[in-house]
Amino acid sequence: MIIKTAQLKRSVDLMTDKIAYRLSILFSLFGLFAVVAPALSHAGGVALASHRAVYDLTLKEFHRDGGIEDVRGRIVMEVENSCEGVLMNQRMLVELLNISGDSMTSDYHLSTWEDRAGQLMRFTMSNVLNGRTIENYDGVANLGSAGGSVTFSEDGADRLDLPEGVIFPTGHTREILKSAKAGKNLLSAKIYDGNGVNGLFDTLTVIGKSGKSDSTLLKDRDMGNLPYWPVQMSYFDLSAQSNEPEFEVGLKMFENGVASDLVLKYEDFSLNGSLVQLDILDTAGCGN
């Protein structure tokens, strides 16, 4: 089949915008591992680590008709626990090469702060594609007994209402770890993750049997005997009411909040994410 150059460029541009959006959503998933340590410790769990993690992204597989030839990138995430809440600063830089040989770069930033009670989240996010800002949001999300709301600082951005039962990424992590330790293998939850007007998802998490890593990097961080659970998370668009997920993420979730061995699955391609650097940071002690 022969496709005209202009048609191909438009198709790839549209596809790249969609991919960049999906890539941006991915980064918010790392908020799942930034849980306030004192809260889990009081519940009988292991105190989770403040840390800085770096992941290298490489192409795992792709569909030839998707317009993508290669993908590579890097994720840097820093988590800082405090007595009041948890601060996360995240960056994801991805370069995509299309079948015509042109490269496209997505540069995504997300900064969030969640309070210890899991009722308040402040967030700032931006996504830049080839030097063009395609998303930029700054706002506050609040949760209550009958749902919640998200307000944005940008002019013209409508308030987003959150349905009853929605949780933030920290609350989601608590539920995943609670389910894993109880031997449960399924968890369904609605999440708002801070990604602007598109941050509300329904999720299904499948949890496997615990294991221990033989990674030299993790052993050097005293994590050789720390248990992890294989986790597969599927994200669904609540408005579409589809049985097919928007994207899926597989990983190993360690008891201290560190993630490794990522597999990021999208419609047109999937990525491997290898943990290449890990720094465990000091966490302040908190009185009761």
Score class of each variant (00 low, 15 high):
D279M: 05
K181P: 07
L262H: 13
R132C: 04
R74P: 06
S210T: 15
A37S: 14
G194E: 06
G199W: 01
N288M: 10
L32S: 14
G171H: 09
G66M: 00
L110R: 05
D56C: 01
V231C: 04
N185P: 02
Q90K: 07
D237M: 08
I19F: 01
V86D: 03
F33D: 10
G156W: 05
D155G: 08
L200Q: 09
Y228V: 11
M15W: 01
L204R: 13
L29H: 11
M104R: 11
N130Q: 01
F123Q: 03
K60Y: 11
R174N: 14
Y137W: 09
E61P: 02
L218Y: 00
D202Q: 02
L8A: 11
G44E: 08
F123V: 06
D214W: 01
T124Y: 10
G85K: 05
V197I: 10
C83V: 05
S210G: 13
S106G: 10
N142K: 14
H109I: 11
F62C: 01
N142F: 12
P38S: 05
E255H: 09
V166T: 15
D261F: 06
N136T: 02
L262C: 05
L204T: 12
S41Q: 15
K4L: 11
P227L: 11
S28D: 10
N243L: 02
V276L: 07
N198L: 09
V166N: 08
N185Y: 03
G183K: 08
T16R: 01
S11K: 11
P163T: 06
G131M: 02
E175D: 14
G199V: 02
G147L: 07
K265H: 10
P169T: 00
G118N: 06
G199E: 04
K190Q: 08
M77N: 11
G73R: 07
E69G: 14
N198C: 07
G171M: 03
D107K: 01
G285A: 15
Y192K: 03
A43C: 10
M88G: 07
A182W: 02
R74A: 06
P227K: 08
R159N: 10
N89S: 10
Y266R: 08
A37E: 12
G165F: 10
Q119C: 08
